[in-house]
């Protein structure tokens, strides 16, 4: 897939840095459900965009269109790479494969050699802090560890565009915050284009360079916030007045958008 998007307004980014470019995207399902309506969204390399919105507003649909699982019924949905990582809400590990074999799966499906995929898996497993658990089956892992394995599996693709669909939604607060920090670290190291969905406003503000607020169904983008905090997030930033103010603004926009539906 190649990007034929119009030249971005920012002159410092070349066209290849635009990894996701949605313009006026609509999604109407065969049963008549209008999930998305007039969505414009650009995600560039080095951006971590978080989408918040009421449940059922079409957030997952947005990612499914970006990944190619679903085709937009109207508008233009362009994606500038075929290296797309996609982390679902469920870890979706194959229960009969141990951690290593699960992490190797994607490379295996692409027909890579045993040696290559073993090397990739080893590196990814180390990156997510699962070293020592290579031989464990998913059922012997906690929710957080399963999510790490799922993350490692996507990392083996070395994604340029990384989609996350409420990946930490089912985890407890402490685990979630730890994984937030590790994901930020990964993002800062790899500088992919991130599109992250969450229903937690404070997670959104903490994680991202940009927060996008969607309205209730049919989902459309009601407001976008740039996040001013430095890329290497200090967990303490959560306790600053600036953070609280931004969370407040986003929450407000969310409530307003919800009311419109």
């Amino acid at each position: 897939m190649t990007v034929t998007a119009p030249a971005p307004t920012n002159t410092q980014t070349s066209t290849t840095d635009v990894l996701l470019d949605f313009s006026n995207v609509e999604m109407t399902f065969p049963d008549g459900t209008i999930a998305l309506h007039g969505v414009d969204l650009v995600v560039k390399r080095g951006e971590f965009v978080t989408v918040v919105g009421p449940s059922g507003c079409g957030k997952s649909t947005l990612l499914r269109i970006a990944s190619g699982l679903e085709t937009a019924s109207n508008g233009v949905a362009q994606v500038g790479t075929d290296r797309i990582g996609y982390v679902f809400q469920d870890a979706t590990l194959l229960p009969w494969r141990n951690v290593t074999a699960n992490v190797e799966l994607l490379a295996e499906l692409h027909g890579e050699s045993k040696k290559d995929r073993a090397a990739k898996a080893r590196e990814a497993i180390e990156l997510v802090g699962l070293g020592g658990f290579e031989k464990h089956l998913p059922k012997a892992l906690s929710g957080g560890m399963k999510m790490r394995a799922s993350l490692a599996r996507s990392l083996t693709l070395d994604p340029e565009l990384f989609l996350f669909d409420e990946p930490f939604g089912a985890l407890d607060e402490i685990t979630r915050e730890r994984l937030n920090d590790e994901l930020i670290e990964l993002f800062n190291a790899k500088q992919f284009a991130g599109l992250f969905i969450t229903h937690s406003v404070s997670e959104a503000v903490y994680m991202s360079t940009k927060v996008v607020v969607m309205s209730g169904r049919p989902g459309t983008i009601v407001e976008t916030f740039d996040v001013p905090f430095p890329p290497t997030r200090d967990p303490e930033v959560r306790f600053t007045p600036e953070f609280a103010a931004l969370v407040g603004e986003v929450s407000h926009a969310l409530r307003k958008g919800h009311g419109n539906s």
Partner: peptide, 21 residues
Amino acid sequence: ETTVGDGIDNVEGHPTPELPA
């Protein structure tokens, strides 16, 4: 598993993954 988990914390400086289910 508990032992292994503690191990990586010390060696690699990774945070200890949560205890397995």
